[in-house]
Write a protein that binds this DNA or RNA. Structure first.
Length: 805
RNA sequence: GCGGGUAUGGCGGAACUGGCAGACGCGCUAGUCUUAGGAACUAGUUCUUCGGAGUGCAGGUUCAAUUCCUGUUACCCGCACCA
């Protein structure tokens, strides 16, 4: 048992006093930027899950430093957001005080784990010096017409009287009180993220994100290509529909409009059954998103009476319906209904007794619609009931009908994206104030940049107001201001920015964190170039990453950052589950507190265990016994020091193994295979323990290789036995290419694919000799005796397989 | 429903480009040392009727398959009436 308490404290103090991990933007050295998602400093302290990714990235940071890179490994705090506000409401303290406390706890915990962060670059998104630039960037969005105010439906909890984010309204109920969430229209600031949909897709080619991360982004953007077609109305005027199945256009038997769309509002004066229609719209708005999807299996809706529409290809007059399965926010908010070939339309038609016209052969319309997934697979599927297109194959018809519509000027090939514009307003206190002012005369006016930051006021009440306004709305002397344009009376925007804002560009700030002239200098950003390696939870790979990429692409387009993509590799780690295999939670009582572990086993043991626990990208269940095993490993490393013989070369018996281990550890760490890197070190230790004595070089190399994962104990032992310069300041071991293969190897001999013998042979044994040796093994002889050798397969330096009959 | 992932001993998990399945660790068993053991060390540990069998299941390709192909089942994650 080594005294980890003393050792870990000693080295942590050394690193801190000497600012060992502080980096300058040193142009003479090659940069390497390693990033972990900065945490939200919650009241419950660091989670063992944080430690997994911080250790993994720390190991890479330490390795890269020893390999001569100028490594930036920063840490900061993403401290705006609802939990701090909740806490403040309950306890009547200012969120900034709660955040300060929590940051102190987090920072202390991080230091106790020996992470090599450059603390000189630390900041919090809640620092006015930081959010000044978040606000400044919002103004750039506004000035480039990328921010606008619009009325959109939002999640509204009628009980808490507040707007909820989609996350807070998961499952259609309010996360706080459990009440059913309804949709309510509110005027919100929006960012034109949908303008960037195509660029965000293309940009993925300039990244090295893991495939599943790229796929997450692609799915979220949700591109689909189809045709937008104009449809004439009986009352005059027209509207458009979007479809990806233009080949079914002759099958239209009705149209359906979104109840929450703009079109139905425009048509309202001409609708005969207004009351019925309005009632349906009202009913829809009361349903949550979930009601409209999963829970609501039936296809509700009403016919719009007094107006009909004409099929654009054959002029057939069909009715128009309202149905909540059509979303106002996707496509044009209106669909052509082809019940024969779309299951939703089919169900709707059955429920409302509407006509079904088959236009593609091969389905059984008695049972269900014959949908594109099926007919596209069916090579024999042909169009019918489609005038001159009848008889064509689906793919031909798709093209010819599209061409015809385009030619006539009533159709356009368009792309649609599921990704919407970014709703950027929150009716919350604890967020960046949006630096906009409303003037009766001038409308919305941006604040003057030189007046930033717009500080959050110090108040004692953070409760949302009854009408859903931000608590800021109640602070009249903050709200009332003068118009930056005309100088007249004006009011500030009282909504704040979403939590995602500050985290969309923090990685740029780390490159130049103390700059008070700009958010980061172009020079600094050019030097660091990109985040080489970004790690975070899978839960953030879709949204946070998309927001951050959008933000960066915008800044790039207005010339403020050097690259269109500022993140190169993105890796995500699996969760650490409780010992019972379930997600850690207080209610389940399976939470592991890292402080307790550090106290009882030491930081190095915890770090080593979390690297060893399993495949980094997969979830893993905590195991106290597993942790003990790693502690035991470190104890053995410690005791091994008593076997030193003072020699300065590798011991002959382990020379090959050491070279192999150097290769394995350096390669595994950089290919996110931390668990096998640790196991390679365990193997090396096992072998070293078998020797009578070990050389100083053997030992120092073992310590060096283990140093990125367990930095305290290794540094201590290196010093204790005076093995050389401090490990973190010296070059990481390099393997000798000529010494990773033994002079001999074990030749495996198979008969008919089954192992029947093994023999140690010289590395340079020829293929002929391999065969000869193989046939001479006693056991092999037994299996080939009396049989004919059909074939002999030789894999050089590995095996011989004798095929007999 | 769509998209993706996973499946290997009692457990966590290894296995490069198709070439010895079960590395490494945990647990377990026996032993050594000890006043003691929830310490340390040593040996063993997939199953087995000792012929073999074996990487969720059923097939296929191959001299050879955890690895490639086809089908299938279970579980996990993401999105979800996206026209």
């Amino acid at each position: 048992m080594y005294n980890f308490k003393e050792i870990e404290k000693k080295w942590q103090e050394y690193w801190e006093d000497n600012e060992s991990f502080k980096v300058d933007n040193d142009k003479t050295k090659k940069p390497y930027y390693i990033l972990v998602e900065f945490p939200y400093p919650s009241g419950s302290g660091l989670h063992v899950g944080h430690i997994r990714s911080y250790t993994a990235q720390d190991a890479i940071a330490r390795l890269k430093r020893m390999q001569g890179y100028n490594v930036l490994y920063p840490m900061g705090w993403d401290a705006f957001g609802a939990p701090a506000e909740q806490y403040a409401i309950k306890n009547h303290i200012h969120p900034k005080d709660a955040v300060k406390e929590n940051i102190k706890t987090f920072k202390g915990q991080m230091k106790s784990l020996g992470f090599s962060f450059d603390w000189s670059r630390e900041f919090s998104t809640t620092d006015p010096e930081y959010y000044k630039w978040t606000q400044w960037q919002f103004l750039q969005f506004y000035k480039h017409n990328m921010a606008y105010k619009d009325t959109v439906p939002v999640n509204w909890c009628p009980n808490c009287k507040t707007v909820l984010s989609n996350e807070d309204a998961a499952g259609g109920v309010c996360e706080r009180c459990g009440a059913v969430v309804i949709q309510k229209e509110k005027s919100q600031w929006m960012l034109r993220m949908s303008d960037y949909a195509e660029e965000l897709l293309k940009g993925l080619d300039d990244t090295n994100f893991a495939d599943k991360v790229k796929l997450g982004q692609i799915n979220w953007i949700g591109k689909s290509t189809g045709v937008e077609v104009d449809v004439e109305l009986s009352c005059g005027g027209k509207f458009s529909i979007f479809t990806t199945c233009i080949e079914t256009i002759y099958g239209i038997t009705f149209f359906v409009l979104a109840p929450d769309g703009k079109l139905v509002k425009e048509l309202m004066p001409k609708i005969e059954n207004k009351e019925e229609v309005l009632a349906y719209i009202e009913e829809t708005s009361k349903k949550s998103n979930m009601d409209r999807t999963e829970l609501n299996k039936g296809k509700t809706g009403v016919e719009i009476k007094g107006i009909t529409a004409y099929n654009p290809v054959n002029g057939k007059e069909v009715p128009i319906y309202l149905g909540d399965f059509v979303l106002g926010s996707y496509g044009t908010g209106a669909v052509m209904a082809v019940p024969a070939h779309d299951q939703r339309d089919y169900e709707y038609a059955k429920e409302h007794n509407l006509e079904i016209i088959e236009v593609i052969t091969g389905g059984n319309l008695q049972e269900k619609a014959y949908e594109k997934y099926d007919y596209l697979e069916n090579k024999d599927a042909k169009l019918i009931n489609s005038e001159e297109f009848s008889g064509l194959s689906v793919m031909d018809a798709k093209k010819k009908i599209t061409d015809m519509l385009v030619e006539k000027g009533i159709g356009r090939v368009v792309n649609n994206y599921k990704m919407r514009d970014w709703i950027f307003s929150r009716q919350r206190f604890w967020g960046e104030p949006i630096p906009m002012v409303y003037c009766e005369k001038c409308g919305w006016v941006p604040m003057d940049e030189k007046d930033l930051p717009l500080l959050l006021p110090d108040v004692a009440e953070y409760e949302p107001t009854d009408n859903g306004e931000s608590p800021l709305a109640k602070i009249t002397d903050w709200v009332n201001t003068t118009c930056p344009k005309c100088g007249g009376n004006a009011k500030r925007e009282t909504d704040t920015m979403p939590n995602w804002a500050g985290s969309s560009w923090y990685f740029l700030r780390f490159m130049d964190p103390h700059n008070d002239k700009e958010f980061a200098s172009m020079e600094a950003m050019k030097y660091w170039n990109k985040v080489d390696w970004y790690n975070g939870g899978m839960e953030h790979t879709a949204r946070h990453l998309l927001y951050a990429r959008f933000w960066v692409q915008f800044l790039y387009n207005i010339g403020l950052v050097p690259n269109k993509e500022m993140i190169w590799t993105r890796v995500s780690h699996g969760m650490i589950l409780g010992e019972n295999g379930e997600k850690m939670s207080k209610s389940k009582g399976n939470v592991v507190n890292p402080d307790d572990i550090v106290k009882e086993y030491g930081a190095d043991a915890l770090r080593t265990y979390e690297m060893f626990i399993g495949d980094y990208e997969k979830d893993a269940a905590w195991s106290e016994n597993g942790l003990k095993g790693c502690k035991k490993f470190l104890d053995r490393v410690y005791r091994l020091g008593t076997k030193l013989n003072g020699k300065s070369e590798y011991s002959r018996e382990v020379e090959i193994l050491i070279n192999q281990t150097i290769k394995k550890v350096s390669e595994d760490l950089l290919s996110i295979k931390y668990n096998t890197a640790v196991s390679a070190l365990m193997i090396l230790l096992n072998e070293l323990e078998k020797l009578e004595s070990i050389s100083n070089k053997d030992y120092r190399t073992l310590l060096h290789l283990l140093n990125p994962i367990a930095p305290h104990i290794t540094e201590e032992l290196n010093e204790k036995y005076k093995l050389g310069d401090m490990l973190f300041k010296s070059s990481f071991p390099v393997y000798d290419k000529n010494k990773i293969m033994d002079e001999e190897y074990e030749l495996v001999v198979q008969v008919n694919g089954k192992v029947r013998g093994k023999v140690v042979v010289d590395l340079n044994t020829s293929e002929e000799d391999m065969k000869k040796i193989a046939r001479e093994i006693e056991n092999v002889k037994n299996y080939i005796a009396g049989k004919t050798i059909v074939k002999e397969i030789v894999v050089p330096k590995k095996l011989v397989n004798i095929v007999v009959k």
